[in-house]
Design a protein around this nucleic acid. Sequence first.
DNA 1: CCCATGTGTAATATAACTGTAATATTGGAA
DNA 2: TTCCAATATTACAGTTATATTACACATGGG
Lengths: 234, 234
Amino acid sequence: MPRKVLIVEDDQNIAELLRMYLEKEGFITRMAPDGNIALTEFSKSQPDLVLLDLMLPGRDGWEVCSEIRKNSTVPIIMITAKGETFDKVQGLEMGADDYIAKPFEMKEVMARIHAVMRRYGHSTGAARRLTYDKLVIDMESFELVVDGKRTDVPPKELELLFHLASSPNRVFTRNQLLDDVWGFDYFGDSRTVDVHIKRLREKLEGVSTRWTLKTVWGVGYKFELGESDEKSAI
Amino acid sequence: MPRKVLIVEDDQNIAELLRMYLEKEGFITRMAPDGNIALTEFSKSQPDLVLLDLMLPGRDGWEVCSEIRKNSTVPIIMITAKGETFDKVQGLEMGADDYIAKPFEMKEVMARIHAVMRRYGHSTGAARRLTYDKLVIDMESFELVVDGKRTDVPPKELELLFHLASSPNRVFTRNQLLDDVWGFDYFGDSRTVDVHIKRLREKLEGVSTRWTLKTVWGVGYKFELGESDEKSAI
DNA sequence: CCCATGTGTAATATAACTGTAATATTGGAA
DNA sequence: TTCCAATATTACAGTTATATTACACATGGG
């Protein structure tokens, strides 16, 4: 079941960025550019999690937080402006579950959202581990097990492989991969992907005949899986 | 809910005596007259506590203990023969929770069973002690046993190690570690973690090939455990 | 009050990863 | 086949992350 996230943020750019990332991971989002709208929107949409900027026009984040807390136990993650000091104890007292300081890494934001959701027992359902013939991609231990041997793989490579292998046989263009793995805000040469694919292939070549990192000429790349094989994810 | 106790004892009379007392106090018992049966019975019945005689035909008690510890956190109370000396450090390393010397008073045995159960109470019990190859982290006595030697370790370091080793192979970011070990309200540089890791490594280096404090570049740290090895926790 | 010890920070050194650009190779269409 | 465009490969250097070291402050016992 998809989970709703209410994004309370007045900075349009940041709000939009958050929205894109969250929707990419399967969340449904609601937006609120100020405190009053946040409260209205909150009671209307009953989200499963709230991302709350502290600096807001109208009622500020603290007020919004304490209003929400008056009749809900929904997890709240606070976002503090750059340089602004955040009093963790006050945050706790107000009922925040976690906080993130701007400027933030989207990876960090997603990790915290997943952590909070997990804590509250809403499974976010994202598989952290993929297993194929002689291949285990484990994002929890952040390692690759190839043919029974642990293999060290740099983060970008591992994330790229994980992403491809999460949707076997689906072709991704280089730009999709840059968006998905590097992030929406990444601007770089799409040839970069080629190099990472090459590095992955070195580590994976000759291991199994059941799957392969395949080039789709003129389009992009895919993790190709033999028909009889099933994906197993934990 | 009734609790299961596995009695590993080759002396029929003692075994029977233990059984009677335990059942009188509402425990369900399983019997194992030697080491091999003990292990079979253990995996079959998944007891909540093990009473383990050290002198056994077949595999001796130490061996049984260490086998059990490879994939279970169940409390173990060892029973030593009359006059036999019990090496506490070895006991710790093997993962025993307590020991009783024969001849024992049944009152004493019951008291210790209740104490152990209470201490590691099955409802709430968080592990207080971790045992790996040549490594014991005991948060109860607040000490570290490395390769059989008690080692003094400052509190922060010990807590950090304990936390990492509580979830072997799982990667923690520096921020997670600061939150988890230093506390949610701690403000400090995440580089602090690096220094503590360094200090721990000095104390642990070269001790065992089965585990290691590993850096996951770009992510954080993990307590990596050899693949064949299982976590053992009390 | 001083000492020994723990802890955090900052500076520096080292190591690992990444992206780019230059070059070689391959695939596909005419 | 021949050529062009796309992809593979290689090497390198910049960047970032981590390790190491040294030091300063705090703490708590003697």
